[in-house]
């Protein structure tokens, strides 16, 4: 049995290509993603990892990468009680809103097993990450995260 999907949406006033860059380069992610560096060449089949102080917290593999529209990869926490669960799937879509300078960013996180131990970190993580990303791109200032 599968658990529910998580769907998050935010509207960001920035070009889609810039949002793509902010999602895929460590110089950006460490500013808004809890000091985490993303690491991948974003070619289909290549590894993806999210690292903090050189230690991988999340690993996965690129499934699809169509800059600046669609990015999809597998996702698994490293060294947590959720690590034995199969990889889940992250799908990020960027859709410019017609007639505006705003892009609708949708994150769907799916393929969770029932009662997944991923659930708390996912449901707290994405809203903070997306809110931080929006703030960084729209105001040029990153939010400060404690701890």
């Amino acid at each position: 049995m599968k658990d529910q999907d998580y769907v998050y949406v935010t509207y960001i006033k920035a070009p889609a290509d810039k949002i793509w860059e902010a999602l895929t380069t460590p110089a950006f992610t460490r500013l808004y993603w809890f000091d985490i560096d993303v690491s991948s060449d974003w070619k289909v089949g290549s590894p993806v990892s999210y690292m903090k102080n050189g230690k991988a917290l999340v690993d996965g593999k690129v499934l699809e990468a169509k800059r600046p529209k669609l990015l999809s990869y597998t996702f698994r926490e490293v060294d947590t009680e959720a690590s034995h669960e199969p990889h889940t799937k992250v799908t990020i879509e960027l859709e410019p809103e017609a007639g505006t300078e705003t892009v609708r960013l949708t994150v769907v996180h799916s393929d969770f097993v029932a009662n997944s131990k991923h659930r708390p970190s996912i449901s707290q993580g994405w809203p903070a990450v997306l809110s931080g990303l929006k703030s960084l791109l729209e105001t040029g200032k990153a939010l400060e995260f404690e701890g």
């Binding site: 998580y6 949406v9 935010t10 449901s123 994405w126 809203p127 903070a128 997306l130």
Partner: peptide, 8 residues
């Protein structure tokens, strides 16, 4: 789906 990003 609940989207808590605006609350954040």
């Amino acid at each position: 789906h609940l989207n808590p990003v605006p609350i954040h």
